[in-house]
C-alpha cells in the first residue's frame, strides 16, 4: 500500500481520489473507517463526501472514527496527510489543521469550477506548483466557508496555501465563492505535512473533465510521499 484513502460511511469521492492519485502516479488503497492499522501506508487522504451523514456537524462524528488515531499518528510522524472537502472539515474538527468550515455565505450548496491562487508552495499539497499560479478547480460544498479565531497569526505563520481568486489571480468579493475569511481555500499545519482544501483537485485531473489544473496538487502530494520515504 502506498496511499491510504479513508472511507467513512457516507464518503463518496473515494474512487475519484484513487483515480486522481493514479493519474498523478501513486497507488492507493481504500481503507474502512474502522481500520486501526495503516502501518503500510506512506500517506493518507481523507476524501470528500458526507462522513456519517455530516450529522451533528461536518466531521464531528468522523473525528471519533477508529481510523482517526492512525491518521493522527501519521500526522505526528510527519507523513503526508491530505483532506479534501469533507476530509478538510474532518481534519479541522480533529484539530490536525487550524480553523473550521461553516455554511456558505449565501446558504446554498455550490458546485462549480472556481479559481485558486497558490499562496505558498511550502506544503505537501503545493510543493510542485509555483507561487502565484492560478488553478481552475471545482468546488462542491455547502459548508465551505473557512473561519478561524485568529486569522492574523494564521496568515503570519505562512500556513495559508490556497486562496480563491479570479482567473487573473485578483482577490475580489465576487471571486470569493463562499465567504471564506481572507478568501482562504486551503491551509497546512506548522510542520507542513498536513494539508486541507475545499475544492476537489481530483475533479480537475483530466482535460476531458474540463480542466487538469488539479493534477499539480495531487502530484505535489505524490512527490511528498517519495520525499518522506527517501
Amino acid at each position: 500500500m502506498t496511499v491510504a484513502v479513508v472511507v467513512f460511511p457516507g464518503t463518496n469521492c473515494e474512487h475519484d481520489v484513487v483515480r486522481g492519485l493514479a493519474t498523478a502516479g501513486a497507488e492507493a488503497e481504500l481503507v474502512w473507517h474502522r481500520d486501526t492499522d495503516l502501518e503500510g501506508a506512506e500517506g493518507v487522504v481523507l476524501p470528500g463526501g458526507f462522513a456519517h451523514g455530516d450529522y451533528l456537524r461536518t466531521g464531528a462524528i468522523a473525528r471519533f472514527s477508529p481510523v482517526m488515531a492512525e491518521v493522527e499518528r501519521m500526522a505526528n510522524d510527519g507523513l503526508p496527510v491530505l483532506g479534501i472537502c469533507n476530509g478538510f472539515q474532518i481534519l479541522c474538527e480533529a484539530g490536525l489543521l487550524p480553523g473550521a468550515l461553516v455554511a456558505n455565505r449565501d446558504l446554498k450548496f455550490i458546485c462549480r469550477p472556481v479559481h485558486l491562487e497558490v499562496e505558498s508552495t511550502d506544503s505537501v499539497l503545493t510543493r510542485a506548483a509555483t507561487r502565484g499560479q492560478v488553478l481552475r478547480i471545482p468546488l462542491n460544498s455547502y459548508e465551505g466557508n473557512y473561519v478561524t479565531a485568529d486569522v492574523d497569526s494564521l496568515e503570519g505563520s505562512g500556513n495559508v496555501i490556497l486562496r480563491y481568486s479570479d482567473a487573473g489571480g485578483r482577490k475580489r468579493p465576487a471571486s470569493n465563492p463562499n465567504g471564506s475569511t481572507n478568501a482562504i481555500a486551503g491551509v497546512t499545519n506548522d510542520r507542513r505535512n498536513v494539508a486541507g482544501l475545499m475544492p476537489h483537485p481530483e475533479r480537475a485531473s483530466e482535460a476531458i473533465l474540463g480542466s487538469d489544473d488539479g493534477l499539480v496538487l495531487l502530484e505535489s502530494f505524490v512527490a511528498s510521499l517519495e520525499l518522506v520515504s527517501a
Partner: peptide, 16 residues
C-alpha cells in the same frame, strides 16, 4: 445555473 450549481453534477468523474 442557479439550479444546477446547487447540485453536485461532477461526482464519479464521468461528466464530460
Amino acid at each position: 445555473s442557479w439550479i444546477s450549481s446547487q447540485y453536485d453534477h461532477m461526482l464519479f468523474l464521468n461528466t464530460v
